[in-house]
Design a protein around this nucleic acid. Structure first.
Lengths: 296, 296
DNA sequence: TTCTTGTTTTTTATCTGCAAAAGCCCTCAA
DNA sequence: TTGAGGGCTTTTGCAGATAAAAAACAAGAA
């Protein structure tokens, strides 16, 4: 059977949205609400029903009106809002990347299921999807084998990344002036400057900025395989940023400067300059990644 | 529950091997047999037991002796030897590649399960694994969407292929003289010459030769992402060769010549020559692929 | 030892089942 | 004739069960 995670997540999100309304404000139609939430009308309706029964709204459907502001106690606890698949991902990433697995170790699905408190099907499904990240490998009719978060992995990943991103960056420069991408790039540039000004306090925000910049550049390639590959980079760096706090501020400061140079190069449209800035930044990204690999 | 496909496959394979023995020949040990088969000893034992009860062997374990040659009627029918997952793959590939699906069409897991005569889990599992091929895309909490075997797909695939293979080919040339790869390349070269001599009758054998050559080159990159990507190429071309029979002989004849030039270039170790031969061949592979795409 | 084969324990492949969530179609009102 | 919400149907996400296959263990002979 399926948990109620979508419902609870939607409920919480609706509470957030409500915080901006006042008592007596009329509620938008179900369809309108559905557009904002990332769920179906069926779920939104379930949320509305519960809210009504908790006295957050009053009035007949069609004339519903906010009766009281949402309280913190209305929220469902965060852990109940995350789907099994997402839980498995987090637990599994922690397990492979931090749990000191060695190449050749076997992954025991049954055991993981017990450890993570989910069914074997959930594990199986995740392993299948995860295999494309190159950290595990399947032996048919037998268990999965750890390939390991090793130095080789880091090198192979970085090599491809450099090929793909350079290609994408050059494609970016060839985008027509009118493309949305340029506007987005300008916004990212502003955000970088902004962050640079407040680096002392907000250096942790860099992680999401990094992801957004590289995804934007990558998507200019227009190639689904390049874009898909970025998911791997993304995932690895996401967890990497989460755990590797050594020298974080300094590293991010350097990276921001590199990003700004990279953005400036893109704006210049000069292939030579782009190539230089791109390679420079990716070389230091590679270094950081390798440094974070255990025994790497 | 699981089918008996591994057992039946192993049984048939053992019958094949037996064809080379004579009445009275002693049987190798269970362990030895297991090495040859692609299965565990448990399965091999089950096979032996059945063979004994059918009178193919006589004698106590340890002194088993062939009692009669295998008969065609001993074989399990081929369809019973293919695992559900493999069946799903074939049926699904046929369904996406030949069944005139359009980008944006939804994939209904339940419906496919009914059509293919398997459970929804089997479909789910396959879709997950298949998603990395870039032909379908998932909408969370909702169905899969067809991205389609379109001209864009062909172009994007070919682009990456060219980048990866050129890199691999140059790496190949740098392999030490002693590497196994050189010996394998020499063997493939001989097989190509052989096939070229009998092109009139055996032109259909090209498909497997093509796969082996490109896999060998690709593996010289030593990069798991490049090697994994080759699986996509492989799968697409595998089905492509199976269905696209137009001008097959002529196409293969040209491709063999290109392969031979490519191999010669590799042997020469001259990067310039390698690049030329590689690009030339991949350009014509691209053309063939694009030509085979419906409305491409 | 190092292989045999016999036996028992684990783990995987696959199916079934069911509640949650998504997708319908329908009717009523502005 | 468009958009609202009510009610019903279908599909998905995940858990659970079970037989097949793999792996681990055991004990005797070469």
């Amino acid at each position: 059977m399926r948990g109620e995670t979508v419902y609870k997540r939607t409920f919480n999100r609706a509470l957030d949205d409500l915080a901006r309304s006042r008592i007596g404000d009329p509620l938008p139609s179900e369809n309108t609400l559905t557009l904002g939430m990332k769920a179906s009308r069926t779920t939104v309706r379930k949320v509305l029903e519960e809210m009504q029964s908790r006295g957050i709204f009053t009035g007949l459907p069609g004339q519903r009106v906010l009766a009281r502001p949402p309280r913190p106690s209305d929220y469902f606890p965060e852990p109940e809002t995350v789907a099994t698949s997402a839980q498995v991902e987090m637990k599994f990433m922690e397990w492979v990347l931090r749990g000191d697995r060695k190449p050749g170790d076997v992954v025991n699905g049954l055991d993981l299921a017990r450890q993570f408190g989910v069914s074997t099907s959930a594990i199986r499904e995740y392993l299948n999807r995860f295999s494309r990240f190159g950290l595990i490998e399947r032996r048919p009719n037998s268990s999965w084998i750890i390939r390991g978060f090793t130095r080789e992995f880091g090198l192979e990943l970085s090599d491809i990344r450099e090929v793909f991103e350079l290609r994408s960056a050059l494609a970016f420069a060839r985008l027509p002036e009118s493309a949305d991408a340029w506007a987005m790039l300008a916004r990212l540039q502003a955000e970088h400057h902004d962050l640079q000004g407040n680096i002392e306090t907000r250096f942790q925000d860099f992680s999401s900025l990094d992801e957004r910049l590289h995804r934007l550049i990558t998507s200019a390639s227009g190639n689904r395989f390049i874009i898909d590959f970025h998911d791997i980079i993304s995932l690895i760096f996401h967890y990497h940023y989460q755990w590797n706090k050594v020298d974080e501020r300094d590293r991010n400061q350097v990276a921001i400067a590199e990003h700004l140079a990279y953005i400036a190069a893109l704006v210049s449209r000069d292939p030579k300059q782009i190539e230089r800035a791109c390679r420079l930044h990716l070389a230091s990204a590679r270094k950081t990644l390798l440094a974070s690999i255990p025994f790497g």
